[in-house]
Write a protein that binds this DNA or RNA. Structure first.
Length: 554
RNA sequence: GGGCUUGUGGCUUAGCCAGGAUAGAGCGCCGGGCUUCUAACCCGGAUGUCGAGGGUUCGAAUCCCUCCAGGCCCGCCA
């Protein structure tokens, strides 16, 4: 209903003023919707905005499509107030399962996220990528898009060659109970120490890279085994975070299937292409001063070439490509896009996020300086368990542990997604272990409270009579949910849904505090139960898009 | 040195792209609220030169310019 009314008012404003895409905002405390369009018209008409607002309002009042909407002017502003019918139909929609799901879209979307190098476990920086990416996936699906989620496995870079070297030259046995990704990190860190001591080892690493590019069977198997072991660990961590990939795409496949070679052949025909041992593109006309190298003088391809081949493949199989990448990929991301444009291929939409660092400085897998996602999940789960244990002695161990696990993931995912991606952050244990307001558990708690009321209420007939301020504010916010989904997907901004969820929980808690539900009677009781049911449903749908369990009790 | 990006109360942060009605929150601080639907909660209070300075505009946290500070990038690494 919110979406429909919003569009209806916009159309009416266009009809009344001739302004394309007229400004229309949420009315905040003043109204349901508001516009400052009179200011804009004042310039052109050279008359007082207040007077113009009056005239526009008068024209709108005659518009039959705005029937039931009260229009008032407040100085130069025009305010719109929706009637009780609006809240009723919004809540009716909110009672339905799957509330907020938008109509099915045509076209297929491929979304790539995480894609960390398989040389050690995912750490607190990588999972910013995971959480942003996975939340986007959920939002896109909620908005009616068909999405395939991909993980691009970097299985032939220098870092993997170093891992492979370590596996074949150092003591690399796996410890009892050690996760594959942690094992690989241990070998990688040890190999790097050797490299520092003896730079001569670089030649051995280079040789491995050349052999793998040529398709040497033994070297390929060596790489593949190490990468597989690491991925096995990634899958466990990703699934603990409720992030699922539909497909793991191996970078080396684009060498093996000839795509990279075919791409380089196309590149060679371009005016911007230069070959002087190495093969590179001159993108200076596109604003890039550095040489964009695609093949080394020893004949091996570089990451950029394989990434181009990967994107060409994605572009031919999907209608939209979305990549979630760290801020360190900004330059190469725009070089990739510029090159794809030059050769007439589809380009990706890239969502960049800034870095997560530790209080003592930036993270480094090579130096072993990182907080792993596994460690974070374990620690936060422990904290959550203490919290559950201290307040629920009526529950058995298994249930308490299950709640703690859900609460921990909620805390972690929400902490990450609530921050705008363009902000660099410093990881903080104290914040990670905070389960109070503006946290995932806070939103889960509101949901559990709603469930508790509904469980005690028994069956009831829906009703829609709201008189109290907290009831109306809550109902209006519920009505906005589809609008928020639409905007979050349009702007590729998952944190919008995080903010929405928190506001919804805030409003519900205020309502909960002031308006008794079970103790009220008659129509008031029915209406409040309806509101609780709609809130519960909307919270559950919202939590679903955030990848957080909607707990029934906690 | 060049490019990208961030700078909002003690701390964390929303709002900025699409300029408008008193700049929203949380933590921390001070003061209240559990024989009442789960207090992982709620209410009240103090705290802001929206990094600094110019400009555009009837109007700037929001747009433009300069400067300062932090982050990231500038490899025949990925």
């Amino acid at each position: 209903m919110y979406l429909e009314i919003f569009e209806t008012i916009k159309r009416a404003l266009f009809a009344a003023t001739g302004v394309q895409n007229p400004p229309l905002t949420d009315g905040g405390t003043h109204a349901d919707f508001a516009t400052a369009i009179a200011f804009e018209r004042a310039k052109e008409l050279r008359r007082a905005p207040m007077q113009i607002a009056e005239e526009i309002a008068a024209a709108l009042a005659k518009d039959p499509s705005l029937k039931g909407i009260r229009i008032e002017t407040k100085g130069p502003y025009i305010n719109f107030h929706t009637g009780s019918g609006f809240l009723r139909s919004s809540l009716e929609a909110a009672l339905q399962p799957g509330y907020g799901t938008l109509p099915l879209k045509t076209g297929r979307v491929v979304l790539e996220h995480t894609s960390a190098n398989p040389n050690g476990p995912l750490h607190v920086g990588h999972i910013r990528n995971t959480v942003i990416g996975d939340t986007l996936v959920r939002l896109f699906r909620k908005a009616g898009h068909q999405v395939e989620v991909q993980y691009y496995v970097n299985d032939m870079g220098r870092q993997i060659a170093i891992v492979a070297w370590g596996f074949s030259h150092l003591d690399s046995s796996r410890k009892e109970g050690e996760k594959g990704d942690h094992h690989v990190a241990r070998v990688y860190i040890a190999a790097n120490r050797e490299l520092e001591k003896d730079p001569g080892i670089v030649a051995g690493v280079d040789l491995l890279m050349q052999q793998v590019e040529k398709g040497d069977a033994a070297t390929t198997a060596l790489f593949r085994n190490a990468v597989s072991e690491c991925l096995e660990g990634f899958r466990v961590t990703l699934s603990r975070l409720y992030a699922r990939h539909d497909r793991f795409v191996w970078e080396s496949d684009f060498i093996r299937n000839g795509d990279t070679e075919r791409l380089l052949a196309r590149i060679r025909r371009m005016d911007e292409c230069h070959e002087d041992g190495k093969l590179w593109l001159d993108l200076s006309k596109e604003g890039f001063e550095k040489e964009y190298v695609l093949r080394r003088s020893d004949g091996t391809s570089v990451y950029a070439a394989r990434d181009l081949a990967y994107h060409i493949w994605k572009g031919r199989n999907f209608d939209r490509m979305i990549d979630v990448l760290g801020a360190d990929h900004k330059l190469i991301g725009s070089q990739l896009i510029a090159t794809l444009r030059l050769i007439g291929e589809k380009v990706p939409e890239i969502v960049h996020f800034e870095f997560v660092s530790l209080p003592e400085g930036s993270m480094s897998t090579r130096a072993g300086k990182f907080v792993s996602a596994d460690e974070l999940i374990d620690e936060v789960t422990r904290g959550a368990y203490e919290e559950v244990d201290s307040r629920r002695d009526d529950l058995d161990e298994e249930t308490k542990l299950a709640i703690a696990r859900s609460v921990a993931i909620a805390a972690i995912r929400y902490d990450i997604v609530k921050i705008s991606p363009e902000k660099s952050t410093v990881f903080d244990w104290k914040e990670a272990l905070d389960f109070e307001r503006q946290s995932g558990p806070y939103i889960q708690y509101a949901h559990a409270r709603a469930c508790s009321i509904l469980g005690k209420a028994g069956p009831f007939e829906p009703a829609y009579e709201f008189a109290m301020e907290s009831e109306i504010a809550l109902a209006k916010h519920i009505a906005k949910f589809p609008y928020v989904i639409q905007n979050a997907v349009r702007d590729l901004k998952p944190h919008l849904i995080a903010t929405y969820a928190r506001e919804l929980a805030d409003l519900f808690n205020v309502f909960y505090q002031f308006e008794p539900v079970l103790k009220s009677t008659g129509m008031t009781r029915q209406s409040r139960l309806t509101l609780v049911q709609a809130t519960k449903n909307t919270l559950a749908e919202t939590l679903g898009t955030l990848g957080i369990d909607a707990l029934v009790t906690m």
